[in-house]
């Protein structure tokens, strides 16, 4: 049995720590953190100036501009870790925005409208979950169907951009607390707060609950076989991850409406792909089974930072952002490929 045992008692503590740190499970996330640091260094060198590039204001702006994306990406992380995908979230964002914009003028109280918006998202997620789990339809197809459904419903609600003029909503959108001055100014708004709270909830749900660990177990790619044999319920878990993703999409729809103060049937086209890109850049394995919520947060930051760098560089056109995101994404997918190939 000596071959099996490694005398941990005599192994120095630092060596165990080192091995843990270089564990291949952390490699993709380490890669995204490295990318983030690299981009910050480049930014500092090119636009550092007198006040520096990495300022509280930059971080604040990144979070304000991308809070809806962060929320989408958190939900998407759950789905992708199970080995699935949810293409419907962009359309759900458009639908909830329009629902808010039409329901508020009808005189419904704001909390009710917001709850309805979130529940619309949950319902869309539930449809996907049932199709995937009960009818054994591929997540790609199921969520594609719901994407068309949600986009179609949005067109039914309105084909025009509807401005949201409700006072309560406007004050919610305008609410913020600022700390510091000028470059050191950190502005905290409602959307950012919601996104950060969801980040913490997602983190605990995924890493500290039995449900979260089952999500990983399902993602191992044996159709939940091993998880079921362990006495855990794989099917229920798969259903729930789509409900989570849909709910996040509903919440992101609210945040996006707060951000733009309007609802429009053509918003969020391709937003689901942005969310997927952020999740993958954040180190979640696209084939399932591996990833971290905090990695996703890093991925969203990388995504936002690319946009910042592109605009600072004066390359105003949006496609430069796409090109860079695409390049970063390809690199990450290749890295993942090597990491998962070694696993086999």
């Amino acid at each position: 049995m000596t071959t099996l045992t490694s005398p941990t008692s005599t192994t120095p503590r630092w060596r165990t720590a080192l091995r843990r740190a270089t564990d291949r499970r952390y490699m993709p996330v380490a890669g995204s953190v490295l990318t983030l640091v690299l981009m910050l260094v480049v930014g500092e060198m090119r636009y550092g100036g007198s006040s520096g590039f990495l300022t509280p204001r930059l971080v604040s702006n990144l979070l304000v501009d991308n809070s809806y994306l962060l929320v989408l990406a958190i939900g998407m992380t759950f789905v992708i870790i199970t080995g699935g995908i949810d293409l419907s979230v962009g359309a759900v964002v458009a639908l909830t925005g329009l629902v808010i914009a039409t329901l508020l003028p009808m005189g419904l109280p704001l909390p009710v409208v917001l709850l309805v918006a979130v529940l619309i998202g949950s319902a869309m997620g539930l449809i996907i979950g049932v199709m995937v789990q009960v009818f054994d339809i591929q997540p790609f197809i199921a969520s594609l169907g719901v994407m068309f459904l949600a986009r179609g419903l949005a067109n039914v609600v309105s084909v025009n951009s509807l401005a949201i003029t409700d006072e309560g909503f406007a004050s919610l959108a305008a609410w913020n607390v600022t700390f510091g001055e000028k470059a050191n100014q950190f502005r905290l708004n409602a959307a950012m707060l919601v996104a950060l709270v969801l980040l913490i909830v997602g983190f605990y749900l995924l890493h500290y609950t039995r449900f979260g660990r089952t999500v990983y177990g399902v993602g191992v790619g044996d159709a939940g076989n091993a998880i079921d044999l362990m006495g855990l319920r794989a099917g229920r878990t798969v259903l729930w991850v789509y409900v989570i993703s849909g709910t996040c999409a509903g919440i992101a729809g609210i945040l996006f409406a707060l951000y733009t103060k309007s609802g429009y049937n053509l918003t969020g086209i391709g937003m689901e792909l942005d969310a997927i890109a952020a999740v993958v850049i954040g180190g979640t394995i696209l084939t399932g089974g591996g990833g971290y919520i905090l990695g996703t947060a890093v991925g969203v930051m990388v995504y936002g930072l690319i946009q910042v760098l592109i605009s600072r560089e004066g390359l105003g056109e949006a496609w430069w952002t796409k090109i860079f995101i695409g390049a970063v994404l390809l690199v990450f997918v290749i890295v993942q490929r090597f990491l998962t190939a070694r696993r086999r």
Partner: peptide, 18 residues
Amino acid sequence: VNLVGNLSVAENVMLGHE
């Protein structure tokens, strides 16, 4: 071996009774 390879040893032993 019907265990989940991408989880830790501890989780594989304890999951469901953690």
